[in-house]
Amino acid sequence: MKFDVTITIALKEGMLDPEARAIRHALANLGFATGDLSTARLFRIGIDAEDAAAAREEARAICERLLANPVIHRYTIEVE
């Protein structure tokens, strides 16, 4: 079966997010007083697998092997 997998890679809690800080400043200059702001990166990947669990496991391996750096990143996986 084909599954549409969405992987979101974000910085771990408490990690400095320099891009988010710059964006927040820019928003403030435009008059938007924002609270917490963080960035993340989203990957949409088509995966062929036996079932949803197998697709999720494949996505997990993709994160561990390449997409995420365990020193700074956490990730979430959605399978449809």
Binding site: P18, E19, N69
Partner: peptide
């Protein structure tokens, strides 16, 4: 560092 030859990682400068 990405290959795991040294601990830690090098990422986006504090002022990006």
């Amino acid at each position: 560092s990405e290959a795991g030859l040294v601990p830690g990682t090098f990422t986006l400068n504090a002022y990006p």
